[in-house]
Structure formats: C-alpha cells, structure tokens
Simulated scan of single mutants.
Amino acid sequence: MTYVQVDKQADNEIAKIGLPNNVSVSGTITAHSSFTQKVTLFTDSQELYVFEGRGERVLIGSLQNQFDSPFQVKVEHQEGDKWLGSSLRTGGPYSIGSSNFLIVVAESGDDSDYNDIVVQFSWKS
C-alpha cells in the first residue's frame, strides 16, 4: 500500500511513508533555506539515510532504493547548536501515466512557504 501521512511526535513531526514493494524508487532532497537542514530517513530499527545542507535550490541528497517496508522521514533545522523539528506537509501519491510521485515538504519557521526542504520520491508503474 502506498501512502504518506504526518504524525506529530513530541516536538517533531514525522512523515510516515509506505511505497510499492519490489520497485526501484528514486529520491531527491532539495534545500531552500539559509538554515542548515537535516533530513533523516529511518525505520523503527535503523537509520537509512541522513542528508544535511543549506542554500537556495541546493540538491543536498539523492537516493535509489527499494523500500520493501514502511519508513519515516524527519526534517530538522539548526538554530545555534540545537536541532529543531520542522513542520511538515505531504502530497501524493500522484500518478501521471506510468510515473508516480510522493512529496514531503518542510517549513523551518523563517517564513511560511513550505519549501525549506523538498523530498520527492518517484517510481514507474
């Protein structure tokens, strides 16, 4: 089952994601903020990926993987020496022909445009 939903946990919002099994999924992580951003993809038992970066329209990471079980995405931004949770919104899954997309966007609080981090997953069906 393919899905994305935001779950509020203490001081963080976490995006819970399920993607199709046995399908190669591409992902890109783009920053649009002067704050340093950290994006962590993880399961209940392990970190899968961690990406950090900042700037406007800066690709801070990409991946190619098969996600045969659900995972989560956490986005944080750095203020001083502290990492603070960002507010999340999600979209999808969307299908256009045989192309499929799922998106997680984050806002760190410096404005309200929800593009400080854009995480996009795509796959073919």
Score class of each variant (00 low, 15 high):
E56F: 13
D44K: 11
E79R: 15
V50F: 00
P70I: 03
V39N: 02
I96A: 11
G53N: 02
G92I: 11
E47P: 05
R54W: 11
S98R: 06
S95V: 08
D81N: 14
L84P: 13
K82V: 07
I96D: 10
T36M: 05
E52Y: 07
S62L: 02
S69W: 05
K74M: 11
R54P: 00
W83N: 03
H77Q: 01
F67T: 04
S69Q: 13
I96H: 01
Y49D: 14
D81H: 15
L88T: 02
G53W: 01
F71Q: 05
W83L: 09
K38R: 11
N65V: 04
F51N: 11
Q66F: 03
S33F: 04
N100A: 11
E52T: 14
R54H: 13
T40W: 06
G61V: 01
D44Y: 01
G80S: 04
Q64D: 13
G97R: 02
V58A: 14
F51T: 03
L84E: 13
E56A: 15
S99E: 10
V39I: 05
G53K: 03
K38I: 03
S34H: 09
Y94T: 08
G80L: 10
F51L: 07
S69F: 08
V73A: 11
Y49P: 01
P70V: 07
F51I: 02
G92M: 11
S86T: 05
F42E: 12
V39L: 06
V75Q: 09
D44M: 02
G97T: 01
L84A: 14
N65E: 15
S62N: 14
S87T: 13
V75R: 07
Q64R: 09
L63N: 02
Y94P: 00
T43S: 13
E52C: 01
K74F: 10
Q37G: 03
L41S: 01
T43N: 05
R54G: 04
G55N: 08
V75H: 06
S95G: 11
L63V: 00
S99P: 01
T40Y: 07
G61K: 03
V73T: 10
L84G: 05
L63K: 03
E76D: 10
F42R: 06
G92F: 12
S99I: 04
Q64E: 09
F101V: 01
K38E: 09
Y94H: 05
Q78H: 09
S87N: 14
N100D: 06
T43G: 12
S86C: 15
F35N: 08
L88N: 08
F35H: 13
H77M: 07
L41A: 11
L59F: 00
G97L: 05
R57Q: 09
S45G: 06
Q64P: 00
V73H: 06
S87A: 14
V39T: 05
E52R: 08
T43M: 05
F35P: 00
W83C: 05
I60L: 04
F71H: 10
Q66W: 00
T43P: 06
Y94M: 06
S69C: 00
E56D: 13
D68S: 09
L41T: 08
S33R: 04
S69H: 06
N65K: 06
L48M: 15
K38N: 02
K82I: 01
V58L: 12
S98K: 14
G97Y: 04
S86I: 07
S95N: 14
K82G: 00
G55E: 07
Q64S: 15
F71D: 09
Q64M: 12
